[in-house]
Design a protein around this nucleic acid. Structure first.
Lengths: 218, 218
DNA sequence: CCATCATTCTATCAATTAATTGAATGATAG
DNA sequence: CTATCATTCAATTAATTGATAGAATGATGG
């Protein structure tokens, strides 16, 4: 006979699949778009063998699917709602764990006496884009940009920021975004560009959250 | 230095706290309202010592708080959004794990050739209540009903269903609800009442989801 | 203060999980 | 068919987790 506890045990199995920092890193990368095991291993600093095992763990939990493409195995999120699930987990953790807040503020430690570096909210960004006052900058690697990005966004991967400044407008405020709330790429970009005199702030979310909210992508 | 991985590790710690069936059962019970360790141990079939340990695990993850009241320790959810988090986890698991669906349909196995026992959705229930065509029946234990319930709901705990039939109207359809989507109390009540000739269906959600949605409670 | 009750702490054992290594499989290009 | 590349499998080890039993703590009522 099936009992309610069996169902909860199965739910727990899915939750346990989320219960490892490396697997969360893999999911965050997968939220940018599908990728091969090797590519995933590189962006998450795992050995290929280890990444493969974690991906199979996620697959058993129904969180990702695998599809062979030639020699490579391409992994993808099974469900767009997984982004929402991770977002909600993040919110709950941030509001209820003091330790969490400490880590977040340290990760984004910034010399921001005037508060001008305050991150841009989704509503604020939408308003800025509608009025044409804001230029969007995607600082993720080209591979992730190609897999999908916010409309009208210019792609300058963080490593090439110095070489491609010509692409950036001087007459509008720039809003930089990257992989999500904990991604430091956009934060780093903002700090560097501000030193060069650009008017630039960081979007408080990233591409996956934008997409999961059903907003238009390119 | 703090890295993004530290944050993901901390998120993983919260997810791991959800990664145990007994702890999910405790959270489901806590979603009905605060309770003592002993009460929680009873409703989840755990020993008191074991329940205490799991509750402390949940506390370290920031999911519950404890407050002493006389000799007893009353535990509560720290955050209403935890109900949403569990709901989303459930949705993701149900849509992506075949095994999950199999278990759910077996738990609610019903002899329902005509489809009349189909669960009532939230919108349908709201419409029925607004028009006065529906009477609400809460079949949870009195303790949980007292801690909060849907407006106008009559409480008849499942064990006392036979004794208190007089409270039920014959002229309206009855909608029974209990703790949530996996709670079998309302399902059991519906089966029994239908045999007695009542017009009755079960609400597909439960009290915690109703409350978390911001709908009025009593 | 003492007895009682509710809960937590401590120690222990069994079970599960994560990382590592090296071998095995599957697909492709020559 | 063979060499190569990407991924998975299998075996081992260390670390973590969960259950249990019994001692310890904290609050209450006489």
């Amino acid at each position: 006979m099936t009992s309610q506890q069996d169902l909860l045990d199965m739910l727990a199995q899915v939750a346990r699949a989320l219960g490892n920092g490396h697997r969360l890193a893999l999911l965050e990368r997968l939220a940018q778009g599908g990728a091969s095991v090797e590519s995933l291993a590189n962006t998450t600093d795992l050995t290929v063998g280890n990444a493969s095992q974690h991906l199979q763990h996620l697959r058993r939990a129904g969180l990702v699917t695998a599809q062979r493409s030639g020699k490579q195995m391409i992994y993808r999120l099974t469900d767009e709602r997984i982004v929402n699930l991770l977002g909600l987990l993040r919110q709950v953790a941030e509001t209820n764990l003091a330790e969490m807040e400490r880590l977040v503020s340290r990760l984004f430690a910034e010399d921001d006496a005037d508060g001008v570096l305050e991150a841009v909210s989704r509503d604020e960004l939408l308003a800025g884009l509608a009025s044409g006052e804001v230029a969007l900058l995607d600082v993720r690697p080209e591979e992730e940009y190609e897999a999908g990005h916010l409309p009208e966004a210019i792609n300058i991967p963080l490593e090439q920021l110095g070489d491609m400044l010509g692409k950036l407008p001087r007459d509008r405020e720039i809003v930089a975004y990257c992989r999500g709330p904990y991604c430091v790429l956009s934060h780093e970009a903002v700090q560097r560009l501000r030193q060069l005199g650009y008017r630039v702030r960081r979007f408080e979310e990233g591409y996956p959250e934008w997409k999961a909210a059903g907003l238009p992508i390119a």
